[in-house]
Design a protein around this nucleic acid. Sequence first.
DNA 1: CGCATTTGCGTGCATATGCCAGTATCAGTC
DNA 2: GACTGATACTGGCATATGCACGCAAATGCG
Lengths: 160, 160
Amino acid sequence: MQASKRAKDPLICNGAALRKATRRITQLYDAVLAPCGLSVSQRSVLVHIARAGEPTMSELAQAMVLDRSALAHNLKPLQRDGYVVVRRDEVDGRSRRVVLTEVGQEKLSASHHLWRSAQDRFEAAYGVERAADLRLALAEIFSDDFAKAFNRARAAPSSG
Amino acid sequence: MQASKRAKDPLICNGAALRKATRRITQLYDAVLAPCGLSVSQRSVLVHIARAGEPTMSELAQAMVLDRSALAHNLKPLQRDGYVVVRRDEVDGRSRRVVLTEVGQEKLSASHHLWRSAQDRFEAAYGVERAADLRLALAEIFSDDFAKAFNRARAAPSSG
DNA sequence: CGCATTTGCGTGCATATGCCAGTATCAGTC
DNA sequence: GACTGATACTGGCATATGCACGCAAATGCG
């Protein structure tokens, strides 16, 4: 009956399960973050920029496990709202560096307590330790090494 | 690596981690599924329809943890390609029932070995048991009960 | 220095996802 | 049987995501 019982079923797609969980968590976090006007997705971009300093488009896309063109699209609303600016790299004219503006930094700071609230709620429901373990598992999965291992792994000869 | 060490950091957003892992897995699975012309997302819709029989839009959306309007949009390419049809419910004229066509069933069957290949690769890299545990964790997270627990867990006291 | 290749991005198109407003339909009331 | 409220769905708008293709700039080669 329960979906949780069925989840052990090897016929359940890992990708579909991941997508469903992501949709749910995005909804829950977005609802909590709503008052500050940032979505989880948008806040994640600002966090990654702040973490990296002034990354190029490629560096930022790589860090976010995001397609370059998708990143370019995602930056548009953030540029429009004045949270980030993109400028040509001084050394390599092909590269663009993404920079967090003052307004963007303030917005990010202002979003922190709301994000913390959402995170706390998640961990109250799921468990602090379990959440940390989950993040570790997810970090392994989205790592470049994992993608390499996936692509190296030949499909197991199905019994038939 | 540092990335995996940092994942334990309580300042890492669970939502962002989930989104990154989902983007990665979607890319990996989609690449394997490409020959059959279905994406993980599209195949997941067909799987859920097959599993449910002839669900209404609401039932299908609920099962997929997907917004009703999002589901309606997602069905359009599948209708256009003749994999599903949507018809009014005989009893309740407001409801629409989503039905898998012959072509849709064949497409789903044809995609199975490709999906199995992707799933096997994932589990070769991540571990069969660990994958089953992950699906269980994800199923817990996207369950309605979890959403209720999340929404109950409020730090701020409600006036009433 | 001039040209072919490589590299870093942006654009256009298609799909994915969600919110809100509007429409159609059903159930209950008088 | 018309009015009222609830329910199921659709459409419009905005963002998210990725692929194919084209542009601009750096690099390698003669």
